[in-house]
Structures are given as structure tokens and as C-alpha cells.
């Protein structure tokens, strides 16, 4: 697997992050993906985020809990431009591949 392509888990995580505003932490990502019918573990999201951080697709920083929240600091991740570009490229590739396959056409 080439390093500059996005894996399916990475796509899911990035899309969920963008839906959540592009700046979030792992728990909402897990919940977002599950709400859309995906099944993913926190551990997987955690590992995928770290990996994308190493590749410069996301950045992270630690933030203290909000005034009404309990617990300690959480690590927030931000989607970077490179990630958006890769997502667009992946979408293009996949869309063109999807086109014209009649058996996969959903009934209108």
C-alpha cells in the first residue's frame, strides 16, 4: 500500500472530522462514524489519527477540559489542507471507477 494514498479507515476518519468541523478529538469521530452505519473501534481511530499525524495529514494539540467537563486534557486533531487534497483525489478516482457499473446503481 502506497503511503500517499488514503486507506478506507483514514477516509472514514477524515470525513467524520470534516463533518464535525475539522477540529475535534477521537470520541466524537467514533460516534460520528457509528451514526452513519460504520463500525469502528476507538483504538482504531486512535491509531489512524496518530498515523495521519505522522504523515502530516492532521495536526494535534492538547486542550484542557471545558468549564462543565470533568477529567483531564484531551488531544484535539485538525484536518490539514494536504488531507483535503488527498480526499478529493481519492473521491475523483473512486467516482470515476464507480461510474457505469450498472449492477451497483442504486434504484431511484
Amino acid at each position: 500500500m502506497s503511503r500517499d494514498r488514503l486507506g478506507s479507515l483514514e477516509q472514514q476518519v477524515l470525513l467524520a472530522m470534516l463533518r464535525l468541523g475539522g477540529d475535534t478529538y477521537a470520541v466524537p469521530i467514533v460516534r460520528e462514524i457509528r451514526e452513519h452505519g460504520g463500525d469502528i473501534s476507538h483504538a482504531s481511530v486512535y491509531v489512524v489519527l496518530r498515523r495521519m499525524q505522522n504523515r502530516g495529514l492532521v495536526t494535534s494539540d492538547m486542550r484542557p477540559p471545558g468549564p462543565n467537563e470533568r477529567g483531564r486534557e484531551r488531544r484535539f486533531f485538525q484536518v490539514q489542507a494536504a488531507a483535503v487534497a488527498q480526499l478529493q483525489e481519492t473521491k475523483r478516482t473512486l467516482s470515476s471507477l464507480w461510474q457505469g457499473i450498472e449492477v451497483l446503481e442504486e434504484p431511484r
Binding site: 477521537a26 470520541v27 460516534r31 484531551r74
Partner: peptide, 13 residues
């Protein structure tokens, strides 16, 4: 520590 706080949050939901 980071992991635990998030897992507990998931647990809360």
C-alpha cells in the same frame, strides 16, 4: 491518560 479519558467518555455516552 489520554486514552482512558476518551474511553470513559465513550462509556458515558
Amino acid at each position: 491518560g489520554e486514552i482512558l479519558i476518551e474511553l470513559r467518555e465513550l462509556g458515558w455516552y
